[in-house]
Nucleic acid binder design. Sequence first.
DNA 1: AGGAGTTTGTGAACGGGAGAACAAACCGAG
DNA 2: CTCGGTTTGTTCTCCCGTTCACAAACTCCT
Lengths: 226, 226
Amino acid sequence: METRALTARTSTESTRDIPEATVARLPVYLRALTTLCEAGTITCSSEELASAAGVNSAKLRKDLSYLGSYGTRGVGYDVDYLRYQIAREIGVTQDWPVVIVGIGNLGHALANYSGFRSRGFRVVALLDADPNRHEEVVAGVDVRPFDDLEQIVKEHGVAIGVIATPALAAQDVANRMVASGISSILNFAPAVLSVPEGVDVRKVDLSIELQILAYHEQRKTHGATA
Amino acid sequence: METRALTARTSTESTRDIPEATVARLPVYLRALTTLCEAGTITCSSEELASAAGVNSAKLRKDLSYLGSYGTRGVGYDVDYLRYQIAREIGVTQDWPVVIVGIGNLGHALANYSGFRSRGFRVVALLDADPNRHEEVVAGVDVRPFDDLEQIVKEHGVAIGVIATPALAAQDVANRMVASGISSILNFAPAVLSVPEGVDVRKVDLSIELQILAYHEQRKTHGATA
DNA sequence: AGGAGTTTGTGAACGGGAGAACAAACCGAG
DNA sequence: CTCGGTTTGTTCTCCCGTTCACAAACTCCT
């Protein structure tokens, strides 16, 4: 009778529906906590953690409150405990298999990026349409033909794909990924992807970021071009 | 008596104070327009352009309205004219000199990325603290010692810097950049930078994007781990 | 010239996130 | 046990951004 049925979960814990803005900050908190942890810190206040993460302390506390009450009033948060809780909420307590398509300059860099491995992701395959690259071994993983995508996805249970191809190829790659069963895509190609309902796409665009900076930069020195 | 005094500008054109969310979308429109232009399209409606950019048409129209009235009712927008207007508003009608610090995997990829050159940016220098790299030439630009930063910035009038170093070095690099006169920073290092008032920092974090995808992915297959 | 059809530009309602401020809860000292 | 100091969790308010809906404006056809 109630809409509750939709939000009710089997689990005994975890209040669901975390705001999107909060979800985007959780990884930042996670990194800050890891840094604190490595520095030997046992406990920290919301003020300290907020400062380490570069956000407002009130915002931090509100964000954490969506996950539950993991702090202790008058004391603060247990660094290691909170770190685990956030990692669990995000889902990076165990590794996610990932495929990267497009082994150009950027693909190389991504394959070699150690931050993936250390933060819950494992590159299980590198794919490229160019046969000349199929001899290569990058970061300990050999480059394979793009047509192997479906088999690899099935074999490793891959849910997340990274697109690092030229813009023209991006939509085709996305289509094949979706057809193979991938339901989350990180797109580095400068192209707008259209995907079916239920598939998440996040886009990282290097030149757009620079253009945004250029806009503000232009403002700073507006009329003073002499 | 009115707050108008604050928003009034000397220029005869350009209504100022464009919302930040709009600024972030202008480069997307610019790219969509360029694509349309290359396809030979002369005119397009807000609906078409919005679809090409992957946004709502009402949002597109409102965004464009902040720049002025560049469309024609009953007709649409002149592709080439609008393209120029947006480029001018962003400030990419002429090239911005850019320095990249940290020539590891990612730095290499960035230096070779053709999208910068074609979108109003010119890499004038590659810097690295490691003397072993100073022999290298990447993308036609030779890698120079980090200590040359100030001289290069002065010489070329560089206002925008890109940080592609490990996390530990990022803050130091940022400090040196600011001291040299750079006032806009694009940071790829997984670290929170603190900079003085007036300096803009944008952050691109590869693993955070993946973590956000992982969160949603975990939801899709919530209790069905069987 | 006039009217039908089309598309822009914008006013207004709506929803979500940011930040301030405070009550509830915890620790430790006496 | 009580009290003062500290820090969390949460409520409330404000502001930005999104979206709807419609009037204004333009073209084309008759």
